[in-house]
Design a protein around this nucleic acid. Structure first.
Lengths: 190, 190
DNA sequence: TCGTATTTTCACAAATTATTGAAAATTAGA
DNA sequence: TCTAATTTTCAATAATTTGTGAAAATACGA
């Protein structure tokens, strides 16, 4: 790799290797890694040059990264070329990625399952199959609306929640107790 | 697909199509779907038969699913063949999957980043690159220890937490207030 | 509008991954 | 140990995905 320090080269190579596990390809992984660690935005030629990929390959890779919202297009005054950079805030990156994955990997399944819920099972086996699909549907629905909610929290709140770890349970229990007291004060049990 | 009701056939086909997005292949996706909606455990021949795959392909697919901990091997009395089933509890499935993904898709990156943190940056660009890697490392570390913690919660507690959605913030704030009162009572500020 | 810098598309070649049938290995009883 | 049922491996081929260079399209300033 042209011009890369060992530190960056290692990072780029790792992203290349992991790319396929992450559902992007080697090239795309490397391009992203390069952009991520670069202080200033890069143009396609710089990337092709640094990674020794063909210009067209870089073009396709950048399209792919844009579709994942992993890179942002930037224009630099007095330069016609398109420059790319990764968002500064890693939380933003995380959220974009999660959203995009959800859109591609989860939502289609959710609608398939919703449709399956509406069918009338034809026999005993079908009835079981549908009940399994229902369980899956509920789990996915729950976790994805939860994700929606959490996503709306500020990075600070989110980080706070995470640092809290499993002690959320204690808080949850505490809240329950308070709520039940409130309920008892206000009216009878439901 | 041999013997499958339209409902199951649709489900199986969907998992086949989504497979590649999820990092497994079409065959593996379909095999899993079939096992998931089946009331009783299935053996490899039944699967090959139902999906019209070669026996060897099914064997490879089942190995793959076992490595993901998505299917469990079961033996049936008086039958030498190996039978496979999916865990009953969808939360268990979710957790297994998440754990396995983490092991394969996140942990290797975490160690690469840890190693990168130890290097001494050679120049200004390297210094920036390392700071970016540090940001990434912190984010991943935080979310994965959080995941460890949350995973230890019972399915009920977890479901409760999720249903709570964004109102966790309120609870968090409340807790902070209580804690700060406690601190003030006990000693001075830190 | 033209000319040029830049990006994108596309057909093909290369590489990788999936699938198969047959052969080999394993397993459990007789 | 031998036999038969069952599972796994493997080499071949098929299918899919990735990467390239050249050509086409686009965008912008003169």
């Amino acid at each position: 790799m042209q011009n890369l320090t060992p530190l960056s080269a290692q990072f780029v190579a790792h992203f290349g290797e992991m790319g396929s596990r992450w559902g992007i390809n080697r090239t795309v992984g490397q391009i992203y890694a390069l952009i991520f660690v670069s202080e200033k935005p890069l143009n396609a030629d710089e990337i092709a040059d640094a990674l020794e990929f063909s210009r067209s390959n870089v073009s396709i890779g950048l399209k792919e990264l844009q579709s994942w919202r992993l890179v942002k297009l930037r224009h630099i005054a007095g330069d016609r070329r398109e420059y790319f950079e990764a968002p500064q805030d890693v939380w933003e990156i995380f959220k974009n990625l999660a959203e995009e994955r959800r859109r591609r990997e989860i939502d289609p399944t959710l609608s398939m399952l919703r449709a399956a819920m509406l069918e009338t099972p034809g026999n005993e086996a079908d009835q079981y199959a549908q009940s399994r699909m229902k369980q899956m549907h509920e789990l996915i629905e729950l976790s994805s609306t939860w994700f929606d909610d959490v996503q709306r929290l500020s990075p600070e709140t989110l980080a706070r929640l995470m640092r809290m770890g499993s002690s959320v349970k204690t808080v949850l229990d505490m809240t329950d107790k308070l709520k039940s007291v409130g309920r008892r004060k206000a009216a009878g049990d439901e």
